[in-house]
């Protein structure tokens, strides 16, 4: 399908989404670096242009994820905006996928036995656009959410890992009924990804995890879990360290969403 058609579909989905105002706020923040609460200004930016700009600033899905998590980390309604970030990412993912299809030669996974001439094995046009730099490809290959989750579960208690990560990136888990319900709104996978994207280095993450764990009983178990978390996410960090692209940063203060 043509790129413009897919883009239009994504735009339509975002514009008709029940959270469309929040989607616009987050898109504007990701593109322009400002948090806009004025409804008139919010509607003055065409969503299609924002999506194009967002993709230009974040050439890979991983970079987009980092950018969205950075914003998420600085706003007050994190739970609500996590859903918004996921919606934006879901839409953008379609554009990245299509890009990959259009810019890379596709070999058949398994060559059919009846192939007659070699050039017929390539049903897609040869790439006309430059192929993405090699470091960007490495991210896709190394980061494997299912692998990370399985390793973490092999070496520690998944629930304790969730509690510690939740306390690190949101607020101390207080074991109240409300917090148990809150924890069920976050999958281990999403919490782990948020943790990876939240801090610039492994040592910073280690420090934050240890600080958060001080508020939770059972120091021995917590140390075991923190070690397992760090061991599991270590390769992803090495990766981010190599690939993070400097971008104009938002002010470090919390951004207040006024709706």
């Amino acid at each position: 399908m043509e790129y413009s058609l897919v883009l239009q579909q994504v735009v339509n989905n975002l514009e008709r989404h029940e959270q469309t105002t929040r989607i616009r706020k987050m898109l504007i923040c990701a593109c322009k670096g400002v948090w806009e609460n004025d409804p008139n200004k919010l509607n003055s930016f065409p969503v299609a242009s924002l999506l194009k700009e967002l993709k230009r600033k974040n050439p890979t899905p991983e970079e987009l994820k980092i950018s969205l998590y950075k914003i998420l980390n600085r706003i007050n309604k994190q739970g609500e905006y996590l859903v918004v970030a996921k919606t934006i990412f879901g839409g953008m993912k379609q554009l990245y996928d299509l890009d990959r299809e259009l810019t890379q030669p596709k070999l058949l996974e398994s060559e059919p036995s009846s192939s007659s001439s070699p050039n017929r094995l390539y049903p897609y046009p040869k790439p006309s656009l430059p192929v993405a730099p090699s470091h960007k490809k490495r991210i896709d290959r190394v980061y494997d959410p299912f692998g990370v989750r399985m390793e973490m579960m092999t070496y520690t208690n998944p629930l304790r890992a969730k509690i510690i990560i939740f306390s690190t990136i949101y607020r101390p888990f207080n074991f109240s009924n409300q917090d148990w319900l809150n924890l069920k709104l976050h999958e281990l996978d999403d919490l782990t990804q948020a943790l990876i994207n939240n801090y610039e280095s492994l040592s910073e993450t280690e420090q934050k995890l240890k600080e958060a764990a001080q508020c939770i009983d059972d120091p021995e178990e917590n140390t075991q879990t923190i070690n397992a978390i760090l061991q599991t996410i270590k390769p992803c960090y090495q990766h981010l360290d190599e690939t993070i692209i400097a971008e104009p940063d938002l002010d470090q203060t919390i951004v207040m969403d006024e709706d």
Partner: peptide, 26 residues
């Protein structure tokens, strides 16, 4: 939720409506 059931034998168990979110059932 988040329980460790690795290698557990659950044959014939009634797990209707159970919450096994993020559980280890390897």
């Amino acid at each position: 939720h988040g329980a460790v059931l690795q290698g557990a034998d659950l044959r014939g168990a009634d797990l209707t409506l159970v919450n096994l979110m993020d559980a280890n059932l390897m």
